[in-house]
């Protein structure tokens, strides 16, 4: 892992790392990647990945409208809102 890779991951994750900490972050990430790399020793050919411990569940909801509309309450938590909308910096000039 080099500084360029760290910069790319930071951008993908929308995180900005303090320049003074970037060396330490790079080293930490390398150590964690080394740890995860230990898995390569295990033979997993023909093993199906297990994405959840419960493979038999996950049900679907009926496609019916819920009356549980709490729009105002959700908007109360917004850092900036205007009637029905969340406000963000101008996107289209």
């Amino acid at each position: 892992m080099d500084q360029e890779t760290v910069r790319t991951i930071c951008y993908l994750a929308r995180l900005d790392i303090d320049q003074s900490k970037s060396g330490k972050i790079q080293k930490d990430l390398e150590r964690i990647i080394d740890l995860i790399g230990e898995l390569q020793r295990i033979n997993t050919s023909d093993v199906e990945p297990l994405y959840s411990p419960l493979e038999m569940t996950s049900f679907m909801h009926e496609d019916i409208e819920s009356s549980d509309n709490k729009k105002e309450r959700f908007l109360e938590n917004a850092p900036a809102s205007n009637e029905n909308y969340f406000l963000v910096p101008r996107v289209v000039e």
């Binding site: 898995l39 295990i42 093993v47 199906e48 990945p49």
Partner: peptide, 10 residues
Amino acid sequence: KAQQVRRLIK
């Protein structure tokens, strides 16, 4: 890879 090993552990 980790999810495959996860199955082996289970």
